[in-house]
Simulated scan of single mutants.
Amino acid sequence: MDGVTFGVLVAFIQYARQFFRPIQGLSEKFNTLQSALASSERIFSVLDTETKVKETNNPKQIKNPQGKIEFENVWFKYNEDEEWILKDISFVAEPGDDIALVGATGAGKTTIINILMRFYDIQKGSIKLDGVDIRDLTLHDLRSHFGLVLQDNALFSGSILDNITLGHPEITREQVIEAAHKVEAHRFIEKLPETYDYVLQERGASLSMGQRQLICFVRALVYDPEILILDEATSSVDSETEALVTESSRLMMEGRTSIVVAHRLSTIQHADRILVMHKGEIRESGSHQELILQENGIYKKLYELQYKDQLVAG
């Protein structure tokens, strides 16, 4: 029997590889299909979830919005079998007031924002906007009165202009530039290639943290809301950027009702009223100077913890 030549051996190996290549391709496609099926299951699960926040059948409208907020004996918990997250919360924010919420993590500060925007419905009490119960407003109408800036920057792939207007056809380029000037964002935007047409990467990765936050400020301001909500808006930036962002937020809050959630007490010392949250309750209320003078007060302890090094040095 004659031996196999080298050429025949090489050809055999090549044919064998070509034979298994489609099988390998099928296995890769099967893995992709399995991954897609798992993802689609999660997507349809979200789409099929029934919303707990119901629209009213007879909505009311606020004809002359001023920005007055009233919490009356509000109780709230996320699930029926949990303990109360908020307990008998009552306060009034008059039009133009600057209200700050402070307290330890889990005290209920962000929850107040969530129920004010009707991301969740309360179990007891009432929340009113300009004298109208927020449950009597459509969700679109209610949320149109608010400008919201969160700790996490919600930026998308696309131009800076599109990220600010979110595709709203009635907001002009001139309005965006005017708003950017007010919060000191125009200075860095005009230095970018193509300025307001500069295309951002996903989540604004090509910008610094402070720049991303300033763009979110412009977005909130350009809609000209009656009420501004800042939820930990400076917690992720350095001290130098914090000073710029804090000054920008003060410019935004002029003439608007503002609710500011903050861990850094330096950002809310000029607030008209500070509400100190503890275990779901409002334990203290007053200006910075009033609260700092309260013996054994919660706010005073928080202040001393944050500034203990400075106090010792002084």
Score class of each variant (00 low, 15 high):
93 A>H: 01
58 N>K: 13
45 S>E: 15
42 R>F: 07
96 G>C: 04
71 F>I: 11
97 D>V: 01
51 T>D: 15
54 K>M: 08
58 N>L: 08
83 E>D: 15
67 G>F: 08
84 W>E: 04
56 T>W: 01
70 E>H: 03
94 E>F: 04
75 W>I: 01
88 D>G: 09
77 K>M: 09
59 P>C: 06
76 F>D: 04
71 F>V: 08
51 T>Q: 15
69 I>K: 00
94 E>M: 10
88 D>P: 08
47 L>V: 12
54 K>T: 14
97 D>G: 02
45 S>I: 03
65 P>G: 05
69 I>G: 00
47 L>K: 01
57 N>Q: 14
77 K>F: 10
52 K>A: 15
66 Q>V: 07
60 K>Q: 14
63 K>R: 13
52 K>P: 01
75 W>K: 07
77 K>G: 05
95 P>N: 09
91 F>E: 05
49 T>R: 13
78 Y>P: 00
92 V>C: 12
57 N>V: 08
98 D>R: 14
89 I>K: 00
73 N>R: 13
62 I>H: 02
66 Q>R: 15
66 Q>L: 14
87 K>N: 11
84 W>A: 04
71 F>D: 00
78 Y>V: 00
94 E>W: 05
48 D>R: 11
96 G>P: 01
46 V>K: 05
79 N>E: 13
86 L>T: 02
83 E>V: 05
72 E>L: 12
70 E>T: 12
42 R>C: 07
42 R>N: 10
57 N>W: 06
79 N>I: 03
94 E>L: 08
83 E>R: 08
46 V>I: 15
89 I>H: 00
98 D>L: 12
48 D>L: 12
50 E>S: 11
89 I>Q: 00
79 N>G: 07
84 W>P: 02
43 I>H: 05
46 V>N: 03
55 E>A: 11
96 G>A: 06
83 E>L: 10
51 T>L: 13
78 Y>H: 10
69 I>W: 00
93 A>I: 07
55 E>W: 09
47 L>E: 01
94 E>R: 13
82 E>Q: 13
78 Y>L: 03
58 N>D: 14
65 P>I: 06
47 L>Q: 02
88 D>K: 14
53 V>P: 05
46 V>G: 02
81 D>N: 14
93 A>Q: 02
72 E>Q: 11
49 T>Y: 06
43 I>G: 07
49 T>C: 07
44 F>D: 11
46 V>S: 04
89 I>T: 04
85 I>H: 02
47 L>M: 14
89 I>G: 00
74 V>G: 01
94 E>D: 15
88 D>A: 08
